[in-house]
């Protein structure tokens, strides 16, 4: 036969462990509100700091905004002035100095060639679909006399391609007509000719 004697009631029993339910509940009851309080203080501080920063920046903006408006107006004007200057540069770069070309032509024409007519034409065209350019062409009609007539015409053609002031600016030089001179007073070896000469595009840029 077994005899059982309860010396303390079940509700009076205590745990031997340091971490018991009651302790944990008390700890949570202190730590959680403390953490919440800390968080609230931290957030309040942050809000105050942001508010102060916003006020200071707004003040700065009020001061600088009119200056920015001035600067933007100035930049617009500056861009416009640059555009005018660029356009004027375009006018300068797109023209061909014809006094230089004529001096060159007089100098480079062989002595046995007599030019009878000269014609310059200009056409405006778009280059690369975006830049307007002047395209000049020169057409010469003349007469070459003597046995060296053909050589002289060839020489003139070559000089129009290679000699200054034509070198680098003429792109296509060719004799478009060459034949015996039909005029009554012409000698058998005299020749008439036509030379056409295209210049490179002179862009407005």
């Amino acid at each position: 036969m077994n005899l059982r004697v309860d010396l303390i009631l079940e509700s009076e029993q205590r745990s031997g462990s340091l971490l018991n339910k009651k302790f944990l509940l008390r700890a949570v009851a202190i730590v959680v509100p403390l953490a919440v309080l800390l968080l609230i203080f931290k957030e309040a501080g942050r809000a105050l700091r942001l508010n102060g920063e916003l006020t200071a920046l707004t003040q700065q903006w009020k001061v600088i905004e009119p200056k920015q408006q001035q600067a933007l107006r100035f930049m617009e004007t500056y861009r416009w002035n640059l555009e005018i200057q660029k356009e004027l540069e375009g006018w300068r770069k797109s023209r061909l100095d014809w006094h230089t070309q004529l001096v060159g032509l007089m100098r480079e024409t062989p002595r046995n060639i007599q030019l009878q007519s000269l014609r310059v034409d200009q056409a405006l065209q778009m280059v690369d679909n975006k830049t307007p350019a002047r395209k000049f062409t020169l057409a010469l009609k003349g007469k070459a006399v003597g046995v060296d007539a053909e050589t002289a015409v060839k020489l003139l053609e070559r000089r129009l391609r290679e000699a200054p002031p034509f070198a680098g600016i003429t792109t296509n030089v060719q004799v478009t007509q060459f034949g015996a001179d039909p005029s009554k007073d012409a000698k058998k070896e005299d020749r008439i000719f036509e030379i056409s000469c295209a210049y490179r595009d002179l862009k407005f840029e």
Partner: peptide, 13 residues
């Protein structure tokens, strides 16, 4: 005048 341009020219003897 650096901007003026001779566009066309005809010289006939």
């Amino acid at each position: 005048n650096p901007y003026v341009s001779v566009l066309g020219l005809s010289i006939v003897g």
